Amino acid sequence: MKDYAFGVDIGGTTIKLGLFETKGNLLEKWEISTITTNNGKQIMPDIALAIENKLKERNIFASEIEGIGIGVPGPVLDDSIVNKCVNLGWGIVDVAEDLRRLTGIEKIKVGNDANVAALGEMWKGAGIGHKNVVMVTLGTGVGGGIVLNGQIVSGCHGAAGEIGHIKLNEHEEEKCGCGKKGHLEQYASATGIVRKSQELLRDTNRNSVLRDIHHLTAKEIFDSARKQDELALEVVEFACHQLGLAMAHIADVIDPEIFVIGGGVSKAGEILLEGVKKYYTEAVFHTCEHTEIALARCGNDAGMYGAVKMIL
C-alpha cells in the first residue's frame, strides 16, 4: 500500500479535506468553499486543485497516493455515481470518474456522507470494536448511515440509511422537506424540535422561558429542559420518543451492535441520550433491548475518516 490518502467530505457550504497516512493518522485537515452556482460544476475542479496544491506544499508525488475517498450529501451508486444531489446542484454525476480525470489518481471511491460518517465512527470514534453500526445524524434534518460486517450498506438505489424519512405519524398535516408527511425528520431534527416548541407556545398559554427567546434554537430548548422548564421538557420528551421509536424499528430489521448519534443536536448530551434509550427500550423487540446507544466522538471529522476508510 502507498503512503498517503485523501479524505473529502463535501457539504453544502464547505468541503472538508484531510491528508492521511495510510496507517490511519490524520496529518492535516483544511476546508474550501463549496461553490454550488452553475449546477455545482466548479466543485470537482476545486477539489482537484486543493489536492494538487497540498501535494506541492508537502512535496508529495501523486504516485505516493493510495486513493481519494469522498462523502457527498446524496445517494451514491457503485461507489462512484451520485444520483442527484439538490444541495450541490447536481443531477446524475460520475464523481469518481470526474476526479480521476482531474487528478490522475486511479483509486477513488464515493459514498453518501452519512454512511461515510458511520464508517468513520466505526473506525475511529464511538463504534470502535464494532462491525455493525447504525449512525443517526441530527442536524437541520435527520440523516443516517448503516455499516454491516464492516461494509457500508448503500442499497440498490443508493438510498439505504435514509432514517429521517421513516414515517411515524399518519395524521401529520405539515410536509417534510422531501414532500411527504409524518417523517422522523419533522420531529427529531433541530428544525423539528423548534417547530414543536413554536406550536406549543402558539396553541397554549403555558408559562415558559422559551417565550422570552426571540430566535429559538434546539440548543436553547434543551438548555431550558435541563432547568426543568415544563414546556421545553415536553418538547425534548417528544423528540426522544420519536427518535427512540424509529431506532427500535431499525433495530428490529438490522439488529446492529451499536447506534451512534451525531450531528449538532447530539451536543445536548445525556438528556438526549437517556431519553432516547428509554423509549427505544420500551419499543424494541426484546432481544435488541441492550443494544448500545452512544454519542458520536469524531465530530465534524467523521466524514473525512470514513472517506479514507473506504479507500483503505
Results as ranks from 00 to 15, higher is better:
Gly125Cys: 11
Glu66Ser: 14
Ile43Thr: 02
Leu26Trp: 04
Ile108Ser: 11
Ile68Met: 12
Gly91Ala: 14
Val134Asp: 12
Thr140Ser: 07
Asn25Glu: 10
Val72Tyr: 04
Asp78Met: 14
Ile60Trp: 13
Thr103Phe: 11
Lys84Ala: 11
Ile10Pro: 02
Ile43Pro: 00
Val134Gly: 14
Val86Asn: 04
Ala96Asn: 12
Ile105His: 12
Gln42Arg: 13
Asn83Trp: 13
Val8Ser: 04
Arg101Lys: 15
Glu52Arg: 14
Val134His: 13
Ile60Asp: 04
Ile128Val: 15
Thr22Lys: 11
Ala48Thr: 01
Pro75Glu: 10
Lys131His: 09
Gly24Phe: 00
Thr13Ile: 08
Lys107Thr: 06
Glu121Tyr: 08
Gly40Pro: 04
Ala126Asn: 05
Asn59Leu: 04
Trp30Phe: 12
Gly69Tyr: 06
Leu17His: 03
Asp78Phe: 15
Thr140Ala: 09
Gly127Ser: 07
Val133Gln: 03
Thr22His: 05
Phe61Thr: 12
Leu102Gly: 10
Lys107Trp: 05
Ile65Arg: 08
Gly69Glu: 02
Asp94Asn: 15
Ala48Phe: 08
Pro73Lys: 04
Asp98Asn: 15
Asn53Ser: 03
Ile51Tyr: 06
Ile10Gln: 01
Thr13His: 04
Phe20His: 02
Asn53Pro: 07
Asn53Met: 01
Thr22Gln: 11
Ile10Lys: 03
Lys131Ala: 08
Lys124Ser: 15
Glu97Phe: 14
Asp113Val: 08
Ala117Trp: 00
Asp78Ala: 13
Leu17Tyr: 05
Ala114Asn: 06
Trp90His: 03
Gly12Glu: 06
Ile128Glu: 05
Leu55Gly: 04
Lys124Ala: 15
Asn38Asp: 15
Pro45Asp: 07
Ala48Ile: 01
Leu99Asn: 07
Lys54Thr: 03
Ile43Leu: 00
Gly129Cys: 09
Gly40Lys: 02
Glu28Cys: 01
Glu121Gln: 09
Val82Glu: 04
Gly91His: 11
Phe20Leu: 06
Asn87Val: 09
Met135Ile: 05
Ile43Phe: 02
Lys41Asp: 12
Gly71Thr: 10
Lys23Arg: 10
Val76Glu: 09
Glu106Asn: 14
Val133Arg: 01
Asp79Met: 14
Val95Pro: 11
Thr13Gly: 01
Leu99Val: 12
Ala48Val: 04
Glu106Ser: 15
Leu77Glu: 07
Asn59Gln: 09
Ile68Cys: 12
Ala50Cys: 01
Ile65Ser: 11
Ile65Gly: 13
Gly120Val: 14
Gly111Tyr: 07
Ala50Trp: 00
Leu27Asp: 01
Val86Pro: 04
Leu55Glu: 02
Glu121Arg: 02
Gly129Lys: 07
Asn25Tyr: 05
Val76Tyr: 09
Lys109Ser: 14
Lys16Ile: 10
Gly74Val: 03
Ile108Asn: 06
Asp94Glu: 11
